[in-house]
């Protein structure tokens, strides 16, 4: 029971972190049709910037400053990069963001070095929030949940209740019409791209000390975020939310399940012996194939439902 409860809480924290990243990616995608491969790189940049900024002004100002810096970087990428390749089609835009991944990766290594950064949880949040069946739940994880919930609420309010959100939603589906009505659609695009990068940066700030701030963090996070976006359905925020939570739960629960397919077969009277590829596949415990599960899930859902969980359109 206690492992279930703690895993649920941890899964929720991880899922919300994934959602922060995936929501920005989905927003950018549904708006501009561009899948930003460099999204996880911006996440990494957010963590590194937060580390550097927090050394001078402390964690809480960094929580504001680093995402804004990431947003500005995003705006610069959109204005000077994406807009120039836009007329060459979607493949060119994909390739452009793909090239950015390499450059940001190496720039980070060149600026901060190859070793992990000592980016730690701030002292004011470094205490156990409550004790559950003898296990501590760190206050910082509660803080992460709080920030991501606030972000979720903020994004929702911005999109649904304000005039800016109205224009963004309209530009999503009818860019020509919105443009004819006198709105500057390219600027809306820039805003959305910068906003998405800002969210990724925020995720980096609170994720950087939850995981480790090191040059490999973009590579380890990137594929999972793409899986979430595809699993939830390209362009659907609600699907993205559900997929993030599911993915967070799966990743945390997989670690604690020590059963394999062979254990399921045993009560049916099937015993596996020998040392072949088949027995290896069947006897590997779920805990070990946890890293494999997201990709298996993605391939499975694409096989049965190519649009993803809640996607409304093909690409």
């Amino acid at each position: 029971m206690e492992t279930v409860l703690i895993s649920v809480l941890n899964g929720l924290v991880y899922g919300m972190l994934l959602f922060m990243l995936a929501s920005g990616l989905t927003l950018i995608f549904s708006m501009m049709g561009v899948l930003n491969f460099a999204h996880a790189s911006i996440y990494m940049l957010g963590a590194y910037l937060a580390f550097t900024v927090s050394r001078f002004v402390g964690f809480f100002p960094a929580l504001i400053i680093a995402p804004i810096l990431c947003g500005l970087i995003g705006a610069a990428i959109e204005i000077w990069g994406l807009r120039r390749v836009h007329h060459n089609g979607h493949i060119a835009e994909l390739l452009f963001t793909f090239g950015l991944v390499f450059i940001i990766q190496r720039l980070v290594q060149m600026t901060w070095g190859m070793l992990p950064m000592a980016y730690r949880v701030p002292a004011s949040l470094d205490f156990p929030l409550f004790v559950l069946y003898g296990a501590n739940f760190p206050a910082y994880r509660g803080f992460m949940l709080l920030v991501s919930a606030a972000m979720l609420l903020g994004t929702w309010l911005l999109l649904k209740k304000t005039r800016i959100g109205l224009i963004i939603q309209a530009a999503l589906t009818h860019p020509q019409m919105v443009s004819s009505l006198g709105h500057n659609v390219p600027r809306v695009f820039t805003t959305v791209f910068a906003g998405g990068c800002l969210l990724a940066g925020l995720a980096g700030v609170i994720g950087g000390n939850y995981q480790t701030t090191e040059p490999g963090m973009a590579d380890s996070m990137g594929p999972i975020v793409f899986v979430v976006v595809v699993f939830g359905g390209l362009g659907s925020l609600a699907g993205c939310f559900v997929a993030s939570i599911i993915m967070g739960m799966i990743q945390t629960f997989a670690v604690v399940i020590d059963y394999s397919i062979a254990d399921l077969l045993r009560p049916m009277g099937l015993m596996l012996t020998g040392d072949t590829l088949l027995t290896e596949v069947l006897t590997v415990p779920v805990a070990r194939i946890g890293a494999l599960l997201p990709f298996v899930m993605m391939v499975t859902i694409l096989f049965f439902r190519p649009r993803g969980l809640m996607g409304t359109r093909d690409t």
Partner: peptide
């Protein structure tokens, strides 16, 4: 699929195989 969704699926396949290669 084609275009972006195709790219995503192939990314998933690549990660799937790379993870499996370290596992089995």
């Amino acid at each position: 699929q084609r275009a972006t969704a195709f790219a995503m699926i192939t990314l998933g396949i690549s990660e799937l195989m790379a993870t499996a290669a370290l596992m089995f």
